[in-house]
Design a protein around this nucleic acid. Structure first.
Length: 559
RNA sequence: UGAGCUGUGGUGUAAUGGUAACACAGCAGAUUUUGGUUCUGUCGUUCCAGGUUCGAGUCCUGGCAGCUCAACCA
């Protein structure tokens, strides 16, 4: 008799975008085409990483393609600095685009289409001031009032629009508007602006144009030109979708369709480009790639791996509900990856000197240490041991609480990869501060055993004083003190929630082999956390960043 | 309060009319030369009120709550 088993792996459930794509494939769609459309006006952050993973991931999963398109319709905000960084970040994440395009590549086509809409009587040139346009738009509960210029003839509109393009009018004096419905319940339909006059140099088209299309007039058509089948964006654009469809229908061009998902939010940080830019400009951080920033380049500099970020994007899922992801989940993802791939080293960040009184002065031994217990292929290395070593101050307590396994007066611990030592004497300065420990070692214990078979619970890391390499170590903490940085008291701003201890610099004493680690590659400082050499590092002045701490269940018990 | 979107543990995401599941976090324990890793156990949830149905997180009706939209930003 056949016994039904549940062991076969259950098919992973689809997210709503995958369902939409599978439905369209079922209806006969032969080709899946997505696109990632950043505006080059800032650096990409972890929220963009989610979008990148979705757009490129969906294309890959369904055998389609994903374009990279820069939404560069506003020359005063955009710069090549940003396009370069965006391309670098996407590649670092492990994705490659089918083709690279710019909305500005389509300026001619967009202009021709605008002329077409004018001729159809669907667009007009408005001479109202910005203030008048705003006032006449009405509000969510009050209909707008039509512009006095709304009924110009197509001939007159065409003449004016051509002259706008030719630079006859100053910035702000005229706009081209779609003629839809000034009383429409969707505010976006109250004669949306298609073109505005901006006499500014564009990073790609130079001074060819002085009129630039608005997002709503450019985005859908750009998708259409590239024959995007699934135009995926974040939720706040959902009210734009009817307008997106309106232009495509009015122009009778390839019908791309827009779908929206909820953007990513993370506790203790923020994704607002405007606010991040402010932090950079005001020097609150070292730059866009300051490891405290939520940007992709910052995560890279901090020691995050592309796989960990991709896995994070996968783990948070895709849906339409507003969400705030616990920062701990991102940290879980790096730890999970780094645990497998990062080599282990020893480093002491808050040193306490230990003199091993029964060990020969001037003698050095090399102990073999495993590079990565999770990966035997990573091999081993030699770590120098001598009479004077540094241990972590936290690994000694004169009056320890219960369950403290580390060093204490008269107590014994294992030095990782090395001997058992016993604390014989605590040396203090005039103020009573502990400045040194005097210990003895068990000469029979170097191979992991002990002279009489006794077992010792505590294992601590250490570094030989005379062999230690000094380095600046930067300990990063959340950028903000509140889960939601925008949660402010009366009279305060989000900047008052900046964490004054978001970066703590200390001097670390490192095992010498740490000097060989390349910039950006994370290693585990055993029992402490994951760290990588910073871009500021030099042979004379090594600098390490803390990527993330190790989980620390003792810290919890001890609290 | 006009329109649109969304409501499932502490946080995310599933369940597509049929036992509310998975991950993170938390708690307890086992293993461990990292108080790491790994393993085991455990906690706890369908916004509310009606209705349809043998059966509702899912369908219907009505509420309530949150978010988005009134830039010549994207």
């Amino acid at each position: 008799m056949a016994v039904e088993t549940n062991t076969e792996s259950r098919e992973k459930s689809l997210n709503f975008l995958e369902e939409i794509i599978e439905e369209s494939i079922a209806k006969g769609e032969k080709r899946i085409q997505t696109r990632f459309p950043p505006e080059p006006n800032g650096y990409l952050h972890i929220g963009h990483a989610k979008s990148i993973c979705i757009n490129f991931g969906l294309a890959k999963k369904y055998g389609g393609k994903c374009n990279l398109r820069f939404d560069d319709t506003n020359p005063v905000k955009e710069d090549v600095e940003y396009v370069d960084s965006i391309k670098r970040d996407i590649k670092w994440l492990g994705f490659d685009w089918a083709i690279e395009r710019y909305a500005s590549d389509y300026f001619d086509q967009l202009y021709d289409w605008a002329v077409e809409l004018i001729k159809k009587g669907l667009a007009y040139v408005d001479d109202q001031t910005q203030e008048q346009i705003r006032e006449n738009r009405g509000t969510v509960s009050v209909p707008g009032t039509p512009s006095p210029w709304r009924d110009r003839t197509p001939e007159e509109n065409l003449d004016l629009f051509v002259r706008m393009k030719n630079g006859e009018f100053p910035d702000g004096s005229k706009v081209l508007r779609a003629k839809i419905d000034m009383a429409h319940p969707n505010m976006l339909f109250r004669d949306p602006i298609m073109y505005r006059i901006i006499h500014a140099e564009h990073h790609r088209t130079g001074n060819k144009w002085c009129i630039y299309p608005m997002y709503d007039y450019a985005h859908g058509q750009s998708d259409s030109i590239e024959q995007i089948t699934h135009s995926i964006c974040t939720l706040e654009f959902d009210v734009h979708r009817p307008l997106y469809d309106w232009f495509i229908q009015a122009l009778d061009i390839f019908p791309s369709h827009q779908y929206e998902f909820a953007r990513l939010n993370l506790t203790y940080t923020m994704m607002s480009k405007r606010k991040l830019l402010k932090l950079v400009q005001e020097g609150a951080v070292m730059g866009w790639d300051d490891p405290r920033m939520p940007t992709i380049c910052a995560l890279r500099r901090k020691g995050y791996t592309p796989a960990s970020v991709r896995n994070f994007a996968e783990m948070v899922g895709v849906a339409k509900r507003d969400n705030v992801i616990d920062l701990g989940k991102l940290e879980y993802c790096v730890r999970e990856d780094l645990n497998k791939v990062a080599e282990r080293r020893m480093a002491v960040l808050n040193p306490l000197k230990v003199v091993i009184t029964n060990y020969d002065e001037g003698k050095t031994e090399l102990f073999e240490a495993v590079n990565n217990p999770e990966n035997e292929a990573a091999g081993t290395r030699k770590v120098p041991f001598s009479r004077e070593i540094y241990i972590e101050r936290d690994d000694f307590m004169e009056n320890p609480p219960k369950k403290f396994f580390r060093l204490q007066p008269g107590g014994e611990v294992r030095l990782r990869y090395s001997y058992l030592i016993k604390c014989e004497e605590v040396v203090k300065d005039a103020e009573g501060n502990i400045i040194e420990l005097r210990c003895t070692y068990d000469p029979m214990s170097g191979d992991g055993s002990s002279s009489d078979g006794r077992r010792v619970k505590g294992v601590i890391h250490w570094v030989s004083v005379k062999d230690a390499v000094e380095a600046e170590v930067r300990l990063f903490n959340p950028l903000f003190t509140k889960e939601n940085p925008d949660d402010v008291e009366e009279g305060q701003t989000w900047e008052d929630n900046l964490n004054p201890d978001s970066m703590v610099k200390v001097t670390g004493y490192l095992e010498p082999s740490l000097l060989e680690i390349p910039v950006g590659q994370a290693v585990q400082f055993e029992r402490v956390g994951y760290f990588c050499p910073d871009t500021d590092t030099t042979p004379e002045h090594p600098v390490f960043n803390r990527t993330v701490t190790l989980k620390d269940s003792w810290a919890k018990i001890n609290k």
